[in-house]
């Protein structure tokens, strides 16, 4: 049963990857790819760049034309997707610091090398408590300290809960970075290193692409993917199903393979939010690292310097 769902998830992923790649590569209005009705493998392989930056081979039959998405105006990007309240649940018992989420996120958003919007912390709460891996995205707070301090409305809170950045408006004062208690924001200190054709694109708050020199960037909850009915890149990139994403109004969250009622999941597994005492009301919930799928140590081999992993509060 579990295997089966894994398989369908993999093929779903491959298709998603191909489509996502095309979405970023083809901007011309006349699409060179013809739509195909059947998904019978044609035997003809195409080499594509995956979200992890690896070359993968995909059957040509799986390639789908990029649907012409209607262009979203800055005004509607600031309002958000109607009748949704986006929510994320991160299951700490499943994380082993593979950082696939981080790679996919950095790759898809063309984050400047060395910086990351998703960070995976090796946490240890006290001397005798067990260490665990904690991925963090932007918390998309309902009381966002960053939005409160922005002097020009460059970072804003939407109806659907997402906190986004308008890089065409940001003046680069970095007050939001000082205000964010989760240190989730990064700054483009220099011209971000991105392919020319991406850099030339018009900036959209929902894709956060292309990043611009002298402005702030951060996790955007991938609302462009939500509009396409897809999951954020980190969710689909994680092979261990750590990330669940969904809609609070529908009361459901999914990692692509498993779907849960959000309220039941949080109730049964004693979900919590980071720094609840600050009153920021994050949209990201955590499930405690109990009954873990992997021992903490398996994640250490992904550490550049293993001693670094356990030196904090």
């Amino acid at each position: 049963m579990k295997n089966k769902s894994e398989n369908t998830r993999r093929s779903f992923l491959a298709k998603g990857l191909a489509a996502a790649f095309l979405a970023s590569a083809c901007n011309t209005k006349s699409n060179p790819f013809q739509p195909e009705d059947s998904v019978e493998p044609s035997g003809e392989k195409v080499r594509l760049l995956s979200v992890d930056g690896e070359i993968i081979e995909v059957d040509k039959a799986f390639l789908k034309p990029v649907p012409e998405l209607p262009k979203i105006s800055n005004e509607s990007e600031r309002i958000g997707i109607p009748d949704k309240k986006l929510v994320m649940v991160i299951d700490l018992s499943r994380c082993k610091n593979l950082k696939k989420c981080q790679e996919a996120c950095n790759h898809m958003h063309h984050v400047h090398p060395g910086q990351s919007w998703i960070k995976v912390y090796g946490m240890k709460d006290a001397d005798h408590t067990a260490p665990y891996w904690q991925p963090t995205t932007c918390m998309h707070c309902d009381e966002p300290p960053c939005v409160k301090v922005c002097p020009v409305d460059a970072t804003f809170k939407r109806q659907d809960g997402a906190v986004l950045i308008d890089s065409d408006r940001c003046i680069g004062c970095r007050f939001c970075m000082a205000a964010c208690p989760y240190s989730t924001r990064v700054f483009n200190w220099e011209e971000p290193l991105i392919p020319l054709e991406i850099a030339k694109q018009e900036y959209h708050c929902e894709t956060s692409v292309p990043q611009k020199k002298g402005t702030v960037g951060k996790c955007d909850f991938c609302p462009d993917m939500v509009r396409q009915g897809e999951l954020p890149h980190c969710v689909s990139a994680c092979p261990n199903g750590v990330f669940f994403f969904g809609d609070m109004y529908e009361d459901s969250v999914t990692n692509g393979a498993e779907t849960f009622r959000f309220t039941e999941l949080i109730r049964d597994k004693a979900g919590y939010r980071l720094m609840e005492d600050l009153g920021t009301k994050p949209s990201v919930y955590y499930l405690p690292p109990v009954n873990r799928n992997f021992p903490y140590e398996t994640g250490l081999k992904n550490e550049p310097d293993p001693t670094e992993a356990s030196n904090h509060h």
């Binding site: 002097p151 020009v152 940001c170 003046i171 004062c173 970095r174 483009n188 402005t215």
Partner: peptide, 21 residues
């Protein structure tokens, strides 16, 4: 200190009064 000094006028064009800045 501003990352985008040429956008200084945004303070007048899109002011948000709840910001201490």
């Amino acid at each position: 200190d501003m990352g985008r000094p040429e956008r200084l006028l945004n303070l007048a064009l899109h002011p948000r009064l709840q910001s201490p800045i």
